[in-house]
């Protein structure tokens, strides 16, 4: 009877469905989500999606402007630019994603430990973070690639290192907040050891702002990577990447081949914009406290 009486109490509807509905209502960010899905899919399936082999020159059409055969034109050697952009996208997404994921994991662990334990450990982590943040992020990334060389992995590391501090600070702040929640106290009362309190009870409750931060950071990572490559410090030929393609295109612009500059640049702008729009929308949805920031 007790049970029956209590079921009558109205319970709110499931959160997942509501979340999806709200995301769909914000049309711009919903569009961003589709754009990103399309870009990711194209990158993943590049060999099947791209109309041509990105490295195969078309001797009949060097420097062809956008047309029916080559939708986005060809370069000096007659390579199809659309195919090149699609293949280069793999490098962009892989490096940006790897850097972001690595920075996220490392930053979350450091931030969680610093926030939960406090004391000297917190001091050490936070001062290290402060020193990294004392450098302009881009200059730091340039310095790192200059020092350790610019293989794919090294470029990802360089970009990741500049991102770690933001996660450390974010997670540490969140830990300081959730540590004081009654459920943290409840977890101790039940008899959880410290490690389990952090991993099961506290860290999962810091995730929503982390997702937002990571989404926004993806955009920034792509931008950093493109800028590094543009300056010749990132990805080098024969590997291609959007920033480096833009750089090549820029040198062709005197010949009137505007498409070689415009389309790789557009790829960067559209992707970064989509990540930022999605990040802002997620922030509104996941973390109402930060709304309006």
């Amino acid at each position: 009877m007790e049970a029956a009486a209590d079921i009558a109490e109205a319970a709110p509807p499931a959160r997942g469905a509501r979340f999806w509905r709200r995301l769909r209502r914000n049309r711009l960010s919903f569009a961003a989500l589709w754009v990103l899905a399309a870009i990711a899919l194209a990158a993943l399936l590049a060999p099947w999606v791209a109309p041509f082999d990105p490295n195969l020159p078309d001797p009949e059409a060097p420097l062809a402007p956008p047309g029916w055969r080559h939708l986005l034109g060809t370069d000096l050697y007659g390579r199809d630019q659309l195919s090149r952009i699609i293949h280069a996208g793999r490098v962009n997404l892989l490096i940006a994603g790897g850097a972001t994921l690595g920075a996220l994991v490392l930053g979350a662990v450091l931030g969680a430990v610093a926030g939960y334990r406090g004391g000297w450990l917190d001091q050490v982590v936070m001062r290290a973070t402060d020193s990294i943040m004392a450098f302009p992020a881009f200059v730091l990334a340039m310095g790192i690639t200059a020092a350790i060389g610019n293989s794919l992995l090294n470029v990802a590391i360089a970009i990741g290192v500049t991102q770690v501090p933001s996660y450390v600070r974010l997670v540490r702040g969140e830990m300081l907040r959730v540590r004081e929640m009654e459920y943290a106290e409840a977890a101790r009362t039940v008899g959880n050891p410290d490690r389990r309190i952090v991993l099961v009870h506290l860290l999962p409750n810091c995730i929503p702002p982390l997702i937002v931060q990571a989404t926004l950071a993806m955009g920034y990572a792509i931008l950093t990577l493109a800028a590094l490559s543009y300056l010749g410090l990132g990805i080098r030929p024969p590997q291609s990447e959007w920033g480096q393609m833009t750089a090549e295109g820029a040198s062709e612009i005197v010949t009137g081949a505007w498409w070689l500059f415009l389309f790789p640049g557009l790829a960067i702008v559209v992707t970064v914009l989509a990540f930022n729009l999605l990040g802002d929308a997620l922030r509104d949805l996941l973390d109402p406290r930060m709304r309006g920031l």
């Binding site: 009654e182 459920y183 409840a186 977890a187 009362t189 008899g191 099961v200 009870h201 999962p204 409750n205």
Partner: peptide
Amino acid sequence: LRRRRERLQMVFQDPTASLNPRL
């Protein structure tokens, strides 16, 4: 001390804040 908690428990004031939202 942790093992003692099997025999000694607590119910908190705020029924919402004292539940981990992810469990």
